[in-house]
Amino acid sequence: MKRQLVNPAGTEATYDRLHFSQANRVDDLIWVAGQVGVDPGTGRPADGMDAQARLAFDGLRTVLEAAGAGLADVVEITTFHTDLRGEIAEFVRVKDEYLPDRYPAWTAIGVTQLALPELLVEIRAVAVRGSGSD
């Protein structure tokens, strides 16, 4: 077994500056680092939970695809929220669009802050490549 670092195109600066990979893959297991709602074009957080959650899930999908997997292969998510009670319903609506069935295990955690003051949510995941196909 050999560990593979997964850093899709466009994430190299994060790897170089902050010294972490977007994901690590060992065989079919993939651990994805926290994904946030930052617009890749502007580098700024999107406005509101809906937009941030969508960008975070889009980032998660991109990292998983670079690791040879997809959203259907996600077996666990951990989400971090700066307003867990106030925005959880909106987050769930978006989550269910990206993970519409065969729901992964999920832990939601309320936090006082994330990496940028405007961030509302961060999503990390564990996936098993090929587990989402029937």
Rank of each mutant, 00 (worst) to 15 (best):
P100R: 14
E65Q: 15
L60D: 01
A53W: 00
R61I: 08
T78M: 12
F20V: 00
P117C: 03
E12A: 14
R54M: 03
D39E: 00
R124K: 13
D47N: 15
A23P: 05
R17H: 11
Q52W: 11
F91C: 10
E97C: 03
V26C: 14
L64F: 11
T11K: 07
T11E: 08
A115G: 15
L84C: 01
A69I: 07
I77S: 00
P100I: 06
A53C: 09
W106E: 15
T112E: 13
Q4F: 14
I77E: 13
A51H: 07
D50E: 13
L5C: 14
E122P: 02
G48E: 00
G59D: 01
G43E: 08
E122D: 11
K2E: 11
S21V: 07
V74A: 03
D47Y: 07
A125W: 06
L71M: 08
T42H: 00
A108H: 13
N24E: 14
G68T: 10
D16C: 06
G34D: 06
Y98Q: 04
A53R: 01
L114D: 05
R85P: 01
V126S: 09
E76H: 11
R93T: 00
T107E: 13
L116R: 15
R124V: 09
G86K: 06
G59F: 05
Q52I: 04
W106F: 10
L55Y: 08
A72C: 14
K95A: 12
N7C: 10
D58V: 10
R85Y: 12
P117G: 01
D28C: 03
P104A: 09
P100E: 14
G48S: 03
Q52M: 04
S133W: 09
L84N: 04
G41Y: 00
I77T: 13
R93H: 02
W31P: 03
D96G: 00
V75E: 12
Q113C: 09
R44C: 06
Q35C: 11
R61A: 14
Q113I: 00
F20I: 07
